[in-house]
Design a binder for these strands. Structure first.
Lengths: 172, 172
DNA sequence: GTTGGAATGTCAACAAGGCTGACTTAAAGT
DNA sequence: ACTTTAAGTCAGCCTTGTTGACATTCCAAC
């Protein structure tokens, strides 16, 4: 059983007050720092082989999850400028990993899809990432996973949380 | 109460088997992505004011936590090359935020300390970061926080976990 | 129909912060 | 004395973020 590490007292209303010392918060900050390094380490190795970067991975991830998404949509999710995304997207299209189709309703829009090759790479990358995630989830147990998700969601900005939930619901 | 979201069954030995779908893992991956953006957003705003970057923040954070640490030590924790760190460290020293003292035992080593000004900025940066962390911890509750920490620790590489724990113990 | 605005793409330039490789200096260790 | 180690430095490269300016294409409203 994990130690709670932060004292908590039940108030009469059933709410919980947390007395969080700066030290406890610092540990959380450091945990995020080191864990994020682990989180990206495995796909980074694969990406390096083919001289791609994390930006390519992120783009492919979200195109995979929402096939046919528009460039504007992707910009909002990734939180970068269109010039930045465009550079990455261009190489992915040139290399035949992503396909850009002109919109039927609105022909200004480009709808993005992974090609078969793109799906192959995306699969490889996310297999690597999921494998570490799965192992961490297994080690920590289901209660811990639920807590992990609750804290992460609470750390997001309102707008990010909206996007995050929209993605989940878009997939059922 | 949070839904468990992943089915779990108790085996006879008391171990827990998790049946984790790719979709559940994907959600965890996306949660990490969005949460990390939130995690760095507040200090990034302050850093931008004074044309520093995240690298400066990270250096100051760990110098604050382990005053007198050597350059080599810091390199290992940050996981970057000495050239990369040196560029950042040089500006911090020039700007009077960090002090570098020649070692007494081993005069090859430089021991790093925050000056008063450095402590001021470090405080401002980590106040911003801790404030979001604190709010997330409060929203999620102590059980969730314990789970959060367990999963993060399980996501680290062995070497990172060693460093992470050493830092904690170094502060008692 | 023409015009305004939105979505997209492109060119150029720049900065942060990673990286490698080569080399120096000083101090320790052996 | 010789080697190794800690640190710093110079030069150059890459990815990925930024801004600004500008062209294109199309929808929609007037």
């Amino acid at each position: 059983m994990a130690m709670a590490e932060a004292q908590s007292t039940q108030t009469h209303g059933g709410e919980t007050l947390l007395f969080l010392t700066d030290e406890q918060l610092r540990q959380g900050i450091e945990a995020m720092f080191f864990a994020y390094r682990g989180f990206t380490a495995d796909p980074d190795l694969i990406l390096q082989e083919m001289s791609y970067g994390r930006a390519h991975h992120r783009a492919m991830h979200f195109i995979h999850c929402a096939p046919g998404t528009t460039v504007n949509n992707l910009l909002a999710i990734l939180g970068v400028t269109k010039q930045s995304l465009n550079r990455v997207l261009r190489t992915l299209i040139e290399d035949g990993l992503v396909e850009s189709r002109v919109g039927r309703m609105d022909k200004r829009e480009r709808h993005l899809f992974l090609t078969e090759a793109g799906q192959g790479l995306e699969q490889r990358l996310s297999d690597a990432q999921r494998s570490r995630m799965r192992s961490a989830y297994r080690q920590a147990g289901p209660e811990a996973v639920a807590g992990f998700r609750r804290v992460l969601e609470a750390m997001m900005d309102t707008e990010m949380r909206r996007q995050y939930r929209a993605l989940r619901e878009g997939r059922g």
